[in-house]
Simulated scan of single mutants.
Amino acid sequence: MENLDTGDEPLFVWGAKFSHVTLTGNFGRLVINSSVNPPAIPIGDSEEFKMANTPQATTDWTLDISNAHAQELTLRGIQAQYVRIDPQTQAIVRREMVPRNSRWKSACSGTWWFNSIEAMMKSDQDDVLLITPRSRPDADVFIRAIEELRNLGIADMPE
């Protein structure tokens, strides 16, 4: 998928399951959820969610966002280990890394990632992807936040 104009409001995608899908170019605001049903079924509580969030055994990667330049790109319920990312502008935060250090909250200043990490901690998700909105004028604030989270040992590079 290339150069998706989503208009002023975010485009929500529900029940998404990918296998070798690449997002590239300029995007507006896009929120991709692996959950089949919108908020009626809490994330992680449905069989549909569990099936959509489990890649096939033969899948080496599901989604490539390394060249996506979005105003906002949020992935919910998609396992980070199967997503190809740009290590300069995108990072993975794993659940087990967050409790070790509470300073991560100030590292997220100026971004919406505090909410992303908090939502992961309140759910049964193992990780969350932090994706810099590269088409925004304040993208450098997000990039600095990734660097600080990595320095704190909270965010890591893709495997």
Rank of each mutant, 00 (worst) to 15 (best):
A145G: 00
R76S: 13
P99W: 14
M97N: 15
S34C: 09
P55A: 04
D64G: 08
D127G: 02
S109C: 04
W14A: 04
M120I: 03
I78K: 08
K50E: 12
W14Q: 14
A70P: 05
A139I: 02
P133A: 06
T62S: 13
R150N: 04
R103W: 02
Y82V: 10
A139L: 01
N26E: 15
F12N: 13
A107D: 00
H20N: 12
M157S: 08
G28T: 09
R150M: 01
A40E: 08
K50D: 15
D86L: 07
M51W: 09
D64P: 06
N101L: 00
A57R: 06
A68P: 09
G153K: 00
Q79G: 07
L23A: 10
Q79I: 06
W112F: 03
R84Y: 10
K122W: 12
I65S: 09
G153C: 04
W104H: 01
I143W: 01
R84G: 02
Q81L: 08
K105P: 04
R103C: 02
W104C: 01
G44D: 08
I92G: 04
Y82M: 13
D8H: 11
M120W: 13
G44P: 02
I143K: 00
Q90L: 05
I78P: 10
R136K: 15
D124C: 11
R100K: 14
Q79R: 04
I65P: 06
L4S: 05
F142M: 00
E118T: 02
R95C: 07
F27N: 13
D127Q: 03
W113E: 00
L129N: 08
G7N: 09
W61A: 14
A57E: 10
S109Q: 11
L149F: 00
G28V: 13
I65M: 06
R103Q: 06
S135K: 12
R103F: 00
D138G: 11
Q88T: 12
A68M: 09
M120A: 07
L11E: 03
D156E: 15
P38L: 07
S34N: 10
T74R: 09
V36F: 07
T54N: 09
I43T: 11
V128F: 01
S35Q: 12
D138L: 10
R150A: 02
E96H: 14
N101E: 02
R76M: 13
T132H: 04
W112G: 06
N67D: 12
I32K: 07
P158N: 11
S135L: 12
I43F: 08
L130I: 03
N33E: 13
F49N: 05
A119L: 07
G110L: 03
A16S: 01
N33R: 11
S109L: 05
P133W: 02
A68T: 01
Q79M: 05
W112D: 04
W61M: 14
S135V: 14
F27M: 12
S34K: 06
P38E: 15
M157P: 03
F49S: 13
M51H: 14
L30P: 12
A16N: 05
Q90G: 05
V83A: 07
A40T: 04
A145D: 00
